[in-house]
Design a protein around this nucleic acid. Structure first.
Lengths: 358, 358
DNA sequence: TTGTAGGCGTTATCAT
DNA sequence: ATGATAACGCCTACAA
């Protein structure tokens, strides 16, 4: 029956300390032998090619299914020169913003048959180099970068790979890549206007010194709101955090130590707001009675804080999906994929209130 | 000079709508031609094989470096039958616990030259099937599963792949896989003992009905503490959430509606505590004055809540690293990789206090 | 120390 | 409609 056996049974034991698979996975030739057809026919049948007899195709598919055959994506990638995999770079997935975006990216990717390589850069140049190298070697078809603290040389390195890149909320001057961006300016302006409408006149901005473009745009939105209302925004009211609670506490400390402390604070993001609120509480002051606080992102915990946080919502998961959608189009050769600007939405909760009459 | 050219220049334009790379990546043969050696020599040089002349090797490495050559991991994977990639399954990376674990996994993986495929299962059976299929086709060398709500048939499917699997905080009766587990029992018992020491006698447990083993063990720890202290733990004081704030609010609601509501609540995790505290606040009650609340995990926001949350800390990132360490050993053929039990640490903050004298 | 030959598991290009 | 054959880019014998 099985006259020639292809030597599969003879295959030597795996080299050096790595007998991981007891049985090597079935190959297309195994299926071909069982089905008594050539392996190209199996290939065609499994791809639902019309070039193969319907019955034969059905039979082959049944056999493959029963045998638990899984075509090797690595072999396919070698010949087609497309791996159907993408690289996703984040500073750290442990960051809630990055996690949400990653979730959206991953879902859309999977829906379209793509797998996602995850890479945390940790804002470490050394690690960034390794990430780029790894993605290049893996021959990913495209790359998405988000919440990056990436150095200036990082992106060019990625660009050398000759694959499309989509940035989420990170844009660089003269960017050579596509992007999905939240409306930073308008979002923060709305937050500031909200505080102004509540009667605040002494409003601080607690920023992210590593936020690059995002921070610059949000700061500009804050300034625009104050400017339009004829409210001064002295330099002392602009404090630098780093987008995380810890640094925000220190920044808030400075603001509270001012001769005339602010009655309201626009924070760069919710993580900063977390730190700011904590520091305010530690000083024996109350939010919003003594100081109003607004955030940016609307992370899952925002509505559960005490008091619930007024913030500017980003549809993070959807932005991840949009980024992947754009990447899919770029990968399929589309030239005219638009850069996307996503509207931000002010969500008013209880951390902002009418200014004290002081 | 270049007599035979291998036809590279003749290569037809990429098939159907996908001219993604303007230039195909350099191959090992390209480097060989430039260095005027054979490609196996290049291969050896790049692997720092002692079998190649030191000078030649140096020259080859220099040329490869200058040319920006990146060996194709997909071609290598095909021949070596090891992809040096692993699959990481989470219900969703947007979950803070999963994010932390993923971060640890990713770092350790990268440090050892492994790449990580990320897959969100979303607790959706359909998606779970796709994940398994994708990992099988990608020929991952190993798999890590965490915070899974996976169905009972899911794990066996993964097991069919014949690659090592490591579970983080998920264990099944008669599990055939390795795992890194937090000390659920001892951790929750410590939390309950802490509340008992504060004088509480009416202590509730707000669980996770999908938490399987984790929930069962934590519940047992809670019961053990109460039992030892001779305190009753009637069924009405055990409420079911799902590990997320929303459901915890509903569960807390039920507890508050009891004829004799609890004076303290042990929550399955911090996300549940978030919801519980919110509901308590919404009822006009105060934490910890009226009700003490404890969590589990010590997520980043725990210490920033108002009041800061008393909780049982899991070293999540480290657990991710440990899982990857175990997987590395399993992948290299080690037989005796121990299952790991990680100690949990009670972190007392301000959400728990002396019981009201009622 | 180096080169030649073969094969990993697919898909693609020819024949038939 | 199907089968033989040749890549894809790399690694690993074995030969020189």
């Amino acid at each position: 029956m099985a006259e020639k056996d292809g030597g599969k049974a003879l295959r030597a034991a795996p080299a050096e300390g790595a007998p991981r698979r007891s049985q090597p996975p079935l190959s297309i030739k195994d299926i071909a032998r069982i089905a008594r057809v050539s392996h190209p026919t199996v290939s065609r049948a499994l791809q639902n090619s019309p070039l193969v007899n319907a019955e034969t195709a059905e039979k082959i598919r049944r056999i493959a299914e029963e045998a638990g055959y899984r075509a090797s994506a690595v072999a396919r990638g070698l010949v087609t020169r497309r791996t159907r995999s993408i690289g996703l770079v984040v500073t750290t997935v442990a960051d809630p913003f990055a996690g949400e975006v990653a979730c959206g990216v991953e879902q859309t990717a999977n829906d379209h048959g793509y797998s996602v390589f995850l890479a945390d850069s940790n804002a470490d140049p050394e690690r960034e180099r390794k990430v780029v190298r790894a993605f290049a070697e893996r021959r990913v078809d495209g790359i998405i970068v988000t919440s990056s603290r990436v150095g200036a040389l990082y992106l060019p390195m990625l660009a050398e790979m000759q694959v499309p890149i989509v940035l989420v909320n990170d844009q660089y001057p003269g960017a050579f890549v596509h992007s999905v961006m939240i409306a930073n300016f308008e979002g923060m302006r709305a937050a500031a206007e909200h505080l102004i409408a509540l009667g605040h006149r002494r409003i601080a901005y607690l920023g992210d010194q590593f936020g690059y473009q995002s921070d610059a745009e949000r700061l500009a939105g804050y300034r625009a709101a104050l400017g339009t209302a004829g409210i001064p925004a002295p330099a002392e009211l602009v404090a630098d955090g780093d987008g995380k609670p810890e640094a925000a506490m220190a920044a808030m400390e400075k603001l509270l130590a001012l001769e005339r402390p602010p009655t309201a604070v626009c924070c760069y993001n919710d993580m900063s707001a977390l730190g700011a609120m904590r520091r305010i509480g530690a000083r024996g002051l109350r939010v919003p009675e003594d100081i109003s606080v607004s955030g940016f992102d609307d992370l899952f915990f925002a509505s559960y804080l005490q008091p619930p946080l007024t913030t500017v919502r980003q549809p993070m998961r959807r932005m991840g999906r949009m980024a992947m959608d754009s990447l899919l189009r770029l990968m399929s050769g589309e030239e005219s994929v638009p850069r996307i600007r996503v509207d931000a939405e002010l969500v008013v909760r209880a951390s902002t209130a009418t200014a004290r009459a002081d």
